[in-house]
């Protein structure tokens, strides 16, 4: 059983999640593992994926992969499935790639399991474990036997371990894109100023702030702590609603779900809708001045105190220990 990993990259450099997916694939494969990277520069460093066990790295660098939303990439994914013969595809839960997977799954009649945190081989089937209902419960599920299996793997669920393989065979894909697939056209890409911080859903450390920060400037404290720890910045809905931080950083039921190794929440009460997006974090630290704040009931370490005092002291402490 060959496995195809739909990876992600940043201007040609494979992202950590790609390495995590390849490591997960090695754990369940009894055939070869292949990778697919889409978009301009996809092939720039694709051979490096061999170190994580990819025999082949399919790449599709055509401008169509970037200038049109989703449908040309769907054609590329289908081409890679065909070229590799893989009946199992692992992909990151990234929204843009999820759309590609959704369309490709419908065309192939493939079953899709999202948010997978563990994979196990049972006879011929792959049994996937995933949190459901905001992490209140855990479900084990599988794709109906006989169908191709598309499995969305949660960031940080698997380690990224090198396997010491030789460089991957980089294979440019030939993809035929129908005119119809160019109906949705990207006319502009607006990027916020580069912060150098990792992406929130993939980061091993997330520092999140809420209403307790008092105002938008309060987020400077959160950013400082995130930066000394090398983490990403998250926010509660109270903070994004108030316009203190952009919505894409919102954690919770109507925002994003994260499962980092470490979540630090400051000035966040821990309402159930917020917990639905972060309670599967491996370690939870909370700073709140109210000892009764619900976040403390799920925190591994709770500090009752004023974040305006605790965070600057913590930043200094981390800097001191780091140097």
């Amino acid at each position: 059983m060959d496995i195809l990993v739909l990876g992600d990259h940043e201007r040609g450099t494979p992202k950590k999640i790609t390495h995590q997916l390849l490591t997960a694939a090695r754990g369940i494969a009894d055939g070869a593992v292949h990778a697919l990277l889409l978009g301009p520069d996809a092939g720039a460093h694709a051979e490096q994926l061999g170190a994580y066990g990819a025999a082949t790295a399919y790449v599709w660098e055509h401008p169509d992969a970037q200038d049109y939303a989703t449908e040309p990439q769907t054609a590329a994914l289908l081409a890679a499935v065909e070229a590799s013969g893989a009946q199992v595809v692992l992909y990151p839960g990234d929204p843009l790639l999820s759309d590609v997977v959704a369309r490709a799954a419908v065309r192939l009649g493939a079953g899709v399991v999202t948010d997978v945190t563990d994979l196990e081989r049972a006879d011929d089937a792959l049994v996937a474990t995933k949190p459901i209902f905001g992490g209140d419960m855990t479900s084990r599920c599988q794709v109906t036997p006989g169908r191709a299996q598309f499995l969305g793997i949660k960031a940080n669920a698997f380690a990224d371990e090198e396997a010491g393989g030789s460089p991957a065979d980089v294979v440019p894909l030939e993809v035929t894109v129908a005119d119809e697939a160019r109906r949705a056209r990207v006319v502009e890409v607006v990027e916020a100023e580069a912060t150098g911080r990792p992406e929130m859903t993939e980061a091993p450390i997330v520092v999140a702030g809420g209403r307790g920060l008092g105002d938008a400037e309060g987020f400077e404290l959160i950013e400082q702590l995130a930066d000394v720890l090398g983490g990403a910045v998250g926010a509660s809905r109270a903070a994004t609603d108030a316009g203190w931080y952009p919505h894409q950083h919102q954690i919770g039921q109507t925002g994003k779900t994260i499962s980092p190794q470490l979540y630090i929440g400051a000035g966040i009460s821990g309402a159930i809708q917020h917990r639905a997006g972060m309670q599967t974090s491996q370690t939870i630290v909370a700073i709140n001045k109210d000892p009764e704040a619900p976040i403390f009931s799920i925190a591994d370490l709770g500090v009752v105190g004023d974040l305006k005092q605790v965070i600057p002291a913590l930043v200094a402490e981390v800097e001191k220990r780091g140097s």
């Binding site: 049994v127 479900s139 084990r140 000892p291 500090v303 105190g305 002291a313």
Partner: peptide, 29 residues
């Protein structure tokens, strides 16, 4: 195209240790 094999409640997360800061931030940090 997918089947659920079973569903189990997750053991509730236990609250861990709690520390009260001294007001200066030093104890908490």
């Amino acid at each position: 195209w997918t089947q659920t094999l079973d569903i189990a409640p997750k053991p509730p997360r236990e609250a861990g240790e709690q520390v009260t800061d001294d007001g200066s931030g030093a104890v908490g940090a």
